[in-house]
Amino acid sequence: MSAEPDTIYIVDDEPGMRKALCRLLRAEGFDARAFASPREFLAGYDAQTIACLLLDVAMPELDGMEFQQILAQRGLRIPIVFLTAHGDIPMSVRAVKAGATDFLTKPVNDADLLRAVRAALKTAARLAAEQWAHKALATRHATLTPREKEVMALVVKGMLNKQIAAHFGTGEQNIKIHRSRVMAKMGVLSLADLVRAAERLEGGNSAGV
């Protein structure tokens, strides 16, 4: 990992639990930041860092599930490791379905906790990388002229140069020039790469958490 320690956010209404988790994670070299409620977390969360969230399921005012939905609505894609009291199976099923990275039962063993946290951080890193890649592609795509964008759309649909020329009512040679500019601007060498880039662009934020 990077020299900067990874950040782990902890949200739990029990002060003793917050303190213990912070100690354990800091002893392991993580940057642990604890909050007593989801509201406090939202105020202190830095979306730029690679981080994961250790979330207590049961809290007054806003339970973990509802909080998960709020995060999704705000487009905050932080991987969540749920912590719950003993034996709350229906809740764990719901949480995992809603996209929780992991679901741990208190009392939690350090090995399980660290494994879950590391996995969540890996997801966070992947998400960050994907986001970065997507951003780069979008930047390249933005440099295309409107005609080039239209040509690219038809190319990735699998149309031949001839068909595209007919569609625009122009010469095949013209289309060939547009097509080579598109390839150059998008930074791809083959048609297959261009199709993948187009898919990614279209997919947008749909990459799983």
């Binding site: 003793g16 639990m17 100690r23 354990l24 800091r26 208190k106 906790l113």
Partner: peptide
């Protein structure tokens, strides 16, 4: 019951 046990466990493992 589990809450204090969970706190004890995490504290002990941190120690």
């Amino acid at each position: 019951i589990y809450q204090p046990l969970a706190i004890i466990l995490s504290n002990a493992q941190a120690a």
